[in-house]
Design a protein around this nucleic acid. Structure first.
Lengths: 201, 201, 201, 201
DNA sequence: ACATAATCGAGACGGTACGTCAGGTCTTTTT
DNA sequence: AAAAAGACCTGACGTACCGTCTCGATTATGT
C-alpha cells in the first residue's frame, strides 16, 4: 500500500513540483488540475497520486521547495535571518516591507494565495501550511521581539507571540481579503502604530 | 438576454439561498455543487444560472441574506450598532469578543470561510465580499475611532481606517490561517496591545 | 435514474452506432473503447453510458441496426425470406452459401465475431444476441423444414429445431473456432450429408 | 532477449498456471488480469511477461496442463481413446455425452469458453487453441469414422473430417452461443440425425 | 378575462477532470 | 541469470459536474 520512498524517481518528483508552480501561475489555482500537472511534467497521473493526496499537497511541497531553493541561492549562510540593528522600528519596517514586496511578486503571490485559500477551507492543508511556511518566519519575529524586550524596547510583560501579530496581522488580512492595497507606506504605518499604540502619549 | 427580475419567483429564490447554506454546512464548500443546490431547492439548474454566475455568488447572496435575517430578528432599530460607552477599550473588547464568537459559530464559520477562500483566489468575489460583508462593519470601527479621537482617547493624527486594522487584522489573520485558536482572552490582549503599543511607557 | 427516452437525441444515437461499427472494423473489438466511440461520434461519454451499459451493448444495437438498414435497402417486401422452390436441398444450399458469404464479408464478420466472443463469456449479451440476431433467422429454417415435412421431404418425427442445427451447427462452429476455412463447397457438403446422413443407403 | 528456458523456475511456472485457472474461475475471463495472476502466484509480473505474451497464452497453457494432468490421473495408458465397440451409433453417443458433461463442468467450462472467446477475436490464439486442444480430439473422430467406413457403417465416399463436424458442430455451436441448453438427450438426437439424415428412408 | 411571453422544473447534451485500474517496461535487490 | 518487488508512463475506465440547450407546464401581467 505505502509506496517505497527509496525507489522514488527524483527526476519525476522535481518535474512535478516545477510543473505545478508553472501551471498555477499560468492558469490560477482553480483551473490547476492534476491531469495538467502530469502532462506538463511528462509523468503518469498515478505517479502524482502515489505520492500526494491532492493538488493542494503538491502545490504546498512545490512552494516549500521554491522557498528553499530561493534561500539556497540567496544568502548561503543565513537563509532566514531577521536583522537586528538595535533599532527595532527600523528592523520591523525593513522586514515588513520585504514581506509586502514578496506578497506582491507574482512568483509568490499566486501559489501563496492558493495555499492560503485551500487552507481556509481545508484544515489539514492549513496545518501543514502554517507549520512549514508560516511558523518558521513568525518564529524569527518572536526572537527579535524577545531581544527587544531584553533591550528594554518592548514592554517586558507582553507575549511576543501575540505582539508579532499586531504587526503581521494587518498586512496578512489586507493581503488575503484585498480590502485595500498593500504598500511600503502601509507597512510603515502599521509598525509605527503597533509600537506606539493608538492612545496618545 | 437579461432576465426580467420582476417576474422572478421569490419562492425559488429563497429555496436556492436556503439550500446553499444548508449544503455548504453539510458538505463543505469544495463539495458544494450547483447541481446539488438545484436538487435540494427543487429547482432547475437553469434557474440558478439565470440569476447567478457561480456558486460563490449564490453563497454570497445567501450569506448576506442570512446576516440580514439575523439582524432583523435581533435588534429591530440598530442592526449593526457599535457601542459607545465612552470607554474605548471596553467597547473594542466587547465588539472584538462578539466577532470572535461569530467566527467560531458553525452557522457563520463555514460559509464565511468559504467566501473568504473564494475571494482570496477570485478578485471579483473578493470585491463583492468586502463591500457587502466586510466594509459595513469596518465602517463602524472608523466611526467609533473618530469619536474616540474627538474625545482625545486616540491620537488625532492617526488614520482610523488603518488604526482599525491593528485591532481586527490579528483576529482575521488568525481565523483565516488557523495559526492559533481564537479566544476572548486573545481578543482582549489584542485590544490592549493595540491601544498601548508594544513600546514601554 | 432511468433516462427519459422521449428526449433522446436521435442525431447522437445514430452517430454512436455508426462510430461503433466503423471503429470495430478499424481497430478490432478488443481495442474498441467507449472513449473512442464517443470521440468519433462527437458525443460525450456520458451520453453513451446513459443509454448503454457496455461497449458490447452498443455494438449489438449497432449490428442490429446495420441488419435492419441492409434489409430495408435490399428487398423492401420480404426482408428475411427463406426460399421455397420445393427443392429443399437447393434451398438449404442457397441459404447456407449466403450465410457463408455473409460470415466472410468484413462488414459483418468483425462485429459478428465480436458479439459472439462477448456472448461466450457474458450470458446477458449472449441472450440478447441470440434473441435479436440468431433466432429470427433460425426461425426461418424451422418454418422451411416444417414445410418440407408436410411435403414428405423430411422425416415427420424429427424436431425441426434440432434438425436445423445439423445444417447450421457445423458452419457456425467452423466459423467461430476457425478450425478450417468456410467455403461454398463446404456448405454444400454439409447440406448433402445432413439430408442423406452418414450411414450408407 | 530470448530467455534461457533451462534456468526457468518450475515452482513459479506451476504457481502461475494454477493461479490463472483459479482466478479465471473466480472472476471470469474479462476480469482476469496479469497482475492478479502474479500476485496470487507470488511472482513478479515480469516473470509472466518473460514467458508468455498475453493472459490468453497463459490460460491456454494452464488449460492444456489441466487436461494433461486429468489424463494422467485417469487412464494411465490410453489418455484420449475413442471407444470402438463395433456399434458406431453407441460409440458416438458415448463420446458426445462425455463431451456434453465436460462442457457443463465448471472446471472446464470457464477456461474453455474464455479461450474460445479469445480465439474468435484473435486468430493466433485460435490457431494454438485448435491445434493443441481441439484437433487432438477431433482426430480421434476421424479415425473412428474411418474404421466405420471400413466396416461399411459409413458411406465410403464421405470426407470424415467433414462428417465429424455434422456430429460435433451442433453441440459446439449450442455451447458457444447458448442458443439452447445442452443435454444427453440432445447429444443422442444429434448422433441419430447425423447418421440417418433428415430425409425419410 | 385572457392571450402571451417569460420563468420555471426537468434533464439530455458535449465536455473536462476526477481518482482508479491494469498494461507492459524498466530498475533495484535477492536468490 | 532469473526472480520478487514494485515504480513508472500510458491509456481507458466509469462517475461527477460543468454550463448550455431544449422541452412542456405554470404563472402573471397588460391589453
Amino acid at each position: 500500500m505505502a509506496p517505497n520512498a527509496t525507489r522514488r524517481s527524483e527526476r519525476s518528483h522535481r518535474a512535478i513540483l516545477d510543473a505545478a508552480l508553472e501551471l498555477v501561475a499560468e492558469l490560477g489555482y482553480p483551473k490547476l488540475t492534476i491531469e495538467a500537472i502530469a502532462a506538463r511534467a511528462g509523468v503518469g497521473k498515478q505517479t502524482i497520486y502515489r505520492w500526494w493526496p491532492s493538488k493542494a499537497a503538491v502545490l504546498l511541497d512545490a512552494f516549500v521547495a521554491l522557498g528553499e531553493r530561493a534561500a539556497r541561492e540567496a544568502g548561503g549562510e543565513a537563509p532566514y535571518a531577521f536583522p537586528d540593528t538595535g533599532d527595532l522600528e527600523a528592523d520591523l519596517k525593513f522586514v515588513l516591507r520585504a514581506t509586502v514586496d514578496e506578497l506582491r511578486s507574482p512568483t509568490y503571490d499566486v501559489p501563496y494565495r492558493a495555499l492560503a485559500a485551500e487552507g481556509i477551507v481545508n484544515p489539514e492543508i492549513a496545518a501543514e501550511f502554517v507549520s512549514r511556511v508560516m511558523e518558521p518566519s513568525l518564529q524569527l519575529y518572536v526572537e527579535r521581539l524577545r531581544a527587544a524586550q531584553r533591550a528594554g524596547q518592548v514592554a517586558a510583560d507582553l507575549d511576543p507571540r501575540i505582539a508579532l501579530e499586531l504587526v503581521t496581522g494587518p498586512v496578512t488580512a489586507r493581503w488575503l481579503l484585498r480590502t485595500l492595497p498593500l504598500s511600503h507606506r502601509y507597512a510603515d504605518a502599521v509598525v509605527e502604530m503597533a509600537l506606539r499604540g493608538l492612545s496618545p502619549r
